[in-house]
Design a protein around this nucleic acid. Structure first.
Length: 604
DNA sequence: ATAGGGTTAG
């Protein structure tokens, strides 16, 4: 360590003065520092100067390590301190919240109470943030009662956080938020905005609008909240009107509009607004790219992806996950691979969530080998990883492999959840393991503590129905503890179609139309069953009935991806530039198939 | 403390 010497040149301050000033400067901004190397350097200096137990320095260190996701180091700092105070606990609690470990945040809170350290308003705002991911009403209520006991309502941060956390707990939560909101003597703009946001989230747009019109002063957040409410509800005319009327628009306002048009399926308007945006960040880029990808317009999506990279914007996890999910939905393997390549180029390692999205994308696009390869290459996996892989194997008929994966995940200590069991039952269905499926279904509550949800009943009806056990399937529908929905009846109808069970099909359709009176597919399904049974009178009757109720069958479409472009085909489609050649080939294939004895099944 | 994109589910 350098010591001050008399030999230093008089013109300049000695080196140790500047390092000390530098050090003090680093200490000042330490809690905002996100570069781990720099923090470690300062940390070393801190230890050298024996400052690591300093009650001013330690919280800053915790905060800095937390921002770098170095929780072990943060906790180490905390554990060095003998006489703990609120400030230290608050920093630890916030660190856990930032690093998505809400239960440890609460553990720290209980520890704090045990040690006789009193919580303050900061503690409660952090803890309420920890409640947000859980959407668990009793937890928020518990925080509420704590706060009431301590009387922190003078600070608007606490009641405002309560409104926000309540609002994230579904419909009951919004009621509690409203109760609190109306009793607040003093409110600020955040109270109003949080309450409006809660109502929007609960789907009560008109109540949200009433509050919005009532509030004394509105800021950009207020306008954006209500604007996004209309956009999410698909009410784009109202959204557009507000968008034009609002005093100041920012990236968020524009993004809500682009997102709204995308959700409404209007990519033309979405692109128009996107192009007009004065400032763009990764979020609007994400919306527009995944919007095109979702529709299978992969050329446009890929072009925009290149453009985004060219502007120097780095896609974050949200961008990658969103685009990969869109690829999975539309089956755009080419674009998915393109995104994967870009991840490999630009990232040293990718997060669990991004890897999960990759596994899912490859599996859904039919590339089960690539899905397995990403899966096997992952250093860390979570429940979603296993569920995606299991589902992928199951969907592609690798029932045996799926069930092996199921036992492997348990060997590695993962507890199956609701989604896992849907995958397991699905694997049994696609592999034709009727008995194994029944066994899993009957023991899932005992063995895994999962009460069968309607989705599991759906799987079982599919399993029994496909296997030709139609009576058992129907009996299961009748004995379900919950009201069967359209999915259940639709699955059963599909099984009737598969096994030409005319009488049961009529009963099932009768129930199905009470749920989906205008879904044309259901009628065609029954119509197909009649046709297969040679009952052409009933087919004709059904057609008349459909005409009478105005139900129209849209033409079915199939699609295929070639050279990074998704081609879609409908019946009698002549729009493709090479349609003549395509139809010639189809005719030839038809002839060849007939020669080997294939009998074509024609949907009326 | 409040606003825009985010992985699994027939």
């Amino acid at each position: 360590m350098s010591k001050p010497t008399q030999m230093s040149a008089p013109m300049r301050a000695p080196a140790w003065v500047s390092t000390r000033r530098l050090f003090e400067q680093s200490l000042q901004d330490l809690h905002k520092c996100t570069k781990l190397n720099q923090i470690k350097e300062v940390h070393a200096q801190i230890i050298k100067r024996d400052l690591h137990r300093d009650l001013y320095v330690a919280p800053k260190l915790i905060s800095a390590f937390s921002l770098c996701h170095e929780m072990t180091l943060a906790v180490n700092v905390f554990n060095q301190i003998q006489d703990l105070n609120v400030h230290l606990y608050n920093n630890l609690i916030r660190a856990y919240v930032q690093n998505s470990q809400p239960s440890l945040a609460f553990a720290a809170f209980f520890d704090m109470q045990k040690n006789g350290v009193f919580a303050d308003n900061f503690t409660y705002t952090f803890l309420l943030k920890a409640c947000n991911g859980q959407a668990w009403l009793p937890l928020v209520q518990m925080m509420h009662s704590h706060v009431e006991k301590c009387g922190f309502f003078g600070d608007l941060f606490v009641p405002n956080s309560l409104i926000d956390s309540y609002s994230k707990c579904g419909l009951l939560g919004v009621n509690s938020a409203m109760k609190l909101f109306v009793t607040m003597d003093e409110k600020d703009i955040v109270s109003w905005n949080s309450m409006i946001g809660g109502l929007v989230k609960a789907g009560d747009l008109s109540a949200a609008r009433t509050l919005f019109d009532e509030m004394p002063v509105r800021d950009t957040v207020s306008w954006n909240t209500i604007l996004d409410g209309y956009a999410k509800a698909g009410e784009m005319n109202e959204a557009f009107e507000l968008f034009n009327k609002m005093p100041g628009r920012n990236v968020v306002s524009w993004s809500s509009m682009v997102s709204g048009y995308r959700k409404a399926g209007d990519m033309e308007m979405a692109k128009l607004l996107f192009d007009k945006m004065p400032v763009k960040n990764v979020i609007p880029w994400t919306i527009i790219i995944s919007g095109f990808a979702e529709k299978g317009l992969v050329k446009e999506a890929a072009r925009l992806y290149d453009q985004m990279e060219a502007t120097g914007l780095r896609p974050d996890d949200g961008t990658l996950i969103s685009i990969l999910a869109a690829c999975a939905e539309s089956g755009s393997l080419g674009l998915g691979k393109r995104v994967h390549a870009s991840i490999k180029m630009t990232r040293f390692k990718c997060s669990i969530n991004v890897s999960n999205a990759l596994v899912d994308m490859y599996a859904k696009c039919g590339s089960i080998d690539m899905a397995l390869s990403v899966f096997n290459g992952m250093h860390k996996r979570d429940l979603v990883t296993w569920n995606c892989m299991l589902q992928g194997l199951a969907m592609h008929g690798h029932g045996e492999q799926a069930l092996q994966l199921f036992s492997r995940m348990q060997d590695e200590g993962f507890k199956p959840d609701k989604v896992t069991l849907i995958g397991v039952l699905c694997a049994c269905t696609h592999a034709g393991y009727v008995d194994e499926g029944l066994c899993f279904f009957n023991t899932m509550e005992r063995d895994y503590g999962i009460v069968p949800h309607i989705e599991h009943y759906g799987c079982m009806i599919d399993l029994l129905g496909r296997g030709g056990h139609l009576k058992e399937a129907f009996r299961l529908v009748q004995s379900m503890p919950m009201e069967p929905n359209a999915v259940i009846w639709g699955t059963l109808l599909g099984a009737c179609r598969m096994h030409n069970a005319v009488e049961l099909a009529e009963v099932v359709l009768d129930r199905l139309v009470t749920h989906e009176p205008s879904e044309p597919g259901n009628f065609s399904m029954l119509s197909n069953i009649f046709a297969a049974a040679g009952d052409w009178n009933s087919v004709a009757n059904m057609r008349l009935q459909m005409k009478g109720t105005g139900v129209q069958k849209p033409s079915g479409a199939s699609s295929i991806e070639l050279d990074n472009e998704v081609h879609e085909f409908t019946v009698f489609d002549k729009s493709h530039p090479k349609s003549d050649t395509i139809y010639q080939m189809i005719d030839k294939l038809g002839h060849d198939l007939k020669k080997v004895g294939y009998v074509q099944q024609i949907d009326p």
